[in-house]
Simulated scan of single mutants.
Amino acid sequence: MVPREESMGPQGPDLVYGWLNPASAEKDARDNDDVIVVSGMTGEPPSVRASFALGALEVALVAGGAVEVEPWETSRQWQGVVVGYLVSGSMRVSQEERTVDLAPGDVVLYTGAHGYRISAPDAHEYLLVRIPTSVLALRHGELTTLLAADLTSLGATRLLRAVMSTLASPDSRPSDAAAGHVADALVAAVHAVLADGRAPGTATVLSLFHSLVLWIEEHLQDAELDAVRIARAHELSPRTVRRVFAANGVTVSSLVRERRLERIRDELVDPGHARESIGTIAARWGFPDPATLSSAFTRRYGASPRRYRADLQRQGQPGAAD
């Protein structure tokens, strides 16, 4: 955390403004989307013990003494979900008129797009991961009931807790080659928690959804892969297909896009495809337009395809020029 003691409004000059991303400390706080307002501080000042990126995901391990935290108004510019994991101490998180008390090992979801409040009465260590909406491909209404909620009763919470616990370990930062897959695991665990938190659907709907997803995986290279094509292949109506996907918190187009981007990412770092150009790989998986690919890939993984491949080459991974 990069602290600044300054007054930017009626709150007064005794508040500390911090940035989880050190690079954004050079900006004016009014232009940042990750500024937090710290008050009620006693004991050790809050600081970021470690921070790194998992593609488009931002990870930070924060430690400090007694503290109260709220987002600065510019944080509403950022659209996404924050996953918090309490490593040690105790903490209270409030949002959407709900409050949850965390013990070590507990996880919580909240969003910067709406006001939240975090308080810790004493020394604590806290891991947080910011996941952009473009990665989750969810509507806000699909997670509202789980913001600042007790997630311990949901079976998938154990999976999410395991991933967060691993990231909180100081010697478990994934390599650049593995970072994308770790991000996939974390996002999948969040999706699983959201699925567990929704009103239970029928076994038939769930089974049909999995069947459709498996069929999509086998046809990702098909030029036309939308609800109409999927419905025709399974003797269903497009409306039924859309409803099945909506019941599981995703759309057909978002799932197809995510799966195709995953295949492109994997082949960019696969030695077996080292001599293939980015354009060839992208076209094979349904992205014939370079600009469209660059935009979608950057939103998903935090870097352009060219940069992503080049960064891994610098880390000693096999690859070839475009």
Rank of each mutant, 00 (worst) to 15 (best):
V59N: 04
A168C: 01
A60H: 07
R158G: 15
V62T: 01
T152G: 11
V62S: 01
H124W: 02
P121R: 01
P71L: 12
A137W: 05
G115Y: 02
A123F: 06
E125N: 00
V82A: 14
R76T: 10
V59Y: 07
A178Y: 06
A66H: 07
A178H: 06
L86T: 03
T74Y: 04
V62M: 02
R161A: 15
L151T: 08
L127K: 00
G84C: 10
V100E: 08
G84T: 07
L61S: 05
G155Y: 12
A123H: 09
A120Y: 03
G141N: 07
L86W: 02
A149Q: 09
T144A: 14
T99D: 11
A137D: 10
Q95I: 07
S172Y: 10
T133E: 12
G84E: 06
S134A: 13
E70C: 10
V100C: 06
R158Q: 15
H114W: 11
Q95K: 09
V163F: 05
Q95A: 15
Y85N: 01
D106A: 02
V83I: 15
L154Q: 07
G155Q: 14
L61I: 06
V107L: 04
P104Y: 05
L102V: 03
G80V: 03
M164W: 05
A156I: 11
G84L: 08
R173D: 05
D106R: 02
Q79A: 12
T166D: 11
L167E: 01
R117H: 14
G89C: 01
S153P: 04
G65S: 07
T157R: 14
E96P: 03
D176S: 08
H124L: 08
V107H: 02
Y110I: 09
V135N: 12
V93I: 13
W78S: 14
A60Y: 06
T145K: 10
S119C: 03
G141A: 08
D150A: 04
D122I: 00
T74A: 15
I131N: 04
G155E: 15
